[in-house]
């Protein structure tokens, strides 16, 4: 998740924006629940508080949905992406998501695409592709470039392909 926020910030940077990505700091332990933030602006970002009311929320692990209050501060004009094969109804969020504009919410089977394209269950790239498709805040090319910068070589190409797949699946729907 931390690297997803970082890659998003790099994508914004590539487009000439200012961006600030940072984790909700914890121990260096794999598997611990993690929140990471990314701010994007067209001017210098001086603010250092955590993101209190996000414009967009990406949930990488849907098993956290009913354990942690993930949605606090999320404005109903905002965007919501969840990494899952299931629908919002199946996740028990059917009523909740009706408050968002329909094209602002989206479920993405990012882990599956990661398995398919990268061979490993790391959904970051696909989620960022979906983010680009849903929010229009960054271009897919920038996301792909950020991914390639982070993972040089084949790993980057595969991840970029997963991002493009997620992007296309949303834009063509």
């Amino acid at each position: 998740m931390v690297s997803a926020a970082e890659m998003l910030s790099v994508a914004a940077f590539i487009e000439g924006d200012h961006a600030q990505a940072f984790p909700s700091f914890g121990s260096e332990r794999m598997g611990a629940p993690v929140v990471a933030f990314c701010r994007i602006d067209d001017k210098e970002i001086r603010l250092r508080e955590p993101v209190m009311s996000p414009d967009a929320l990406i949930v990488q692990d849907s098993t956290l949905l009913h354990q942690v209050d993930l949605f606090s501060g999320l404005d109903t004009r905002g965007y919501l992406l969840i990494n899952t094969r299931r629908s919002y109804q199946d996740l028990g969020l059917g009523d909740y998501v009706t408050r968002f504009p329909p094209h602002h919410i989206c479920t993405v089977a990012a882990t599956e695409w990661a398995r398919e394209f990268v061979g490993r269950p790391f959904p970051n790239a696909a989620l960022l592709g979906a983010f680009a498709a849903v929010t229009y805040r960054v271009k897919l090319e920038s996301v792909e470039a950020a991914i390639r910068r982070r993972f040089p070589g084949k790993l980057g190409e595969d991840n970029a392909a997963a991002a493009a797949k997620a992007y296309d699946s949303i834009r063509t729907n």
Binding site: V2, A5, E6, S9, V10, F13, H18, A19, Q20, A21, F22, P23, F25, I45, R48
Partner: peptide, 12 residues
Amino acid sequence: EDGFILTHACEQ
């Protein structure tokens, strides 16, 4: 420099 807030922040 502030730990995490700066050390772990990715920025320009």
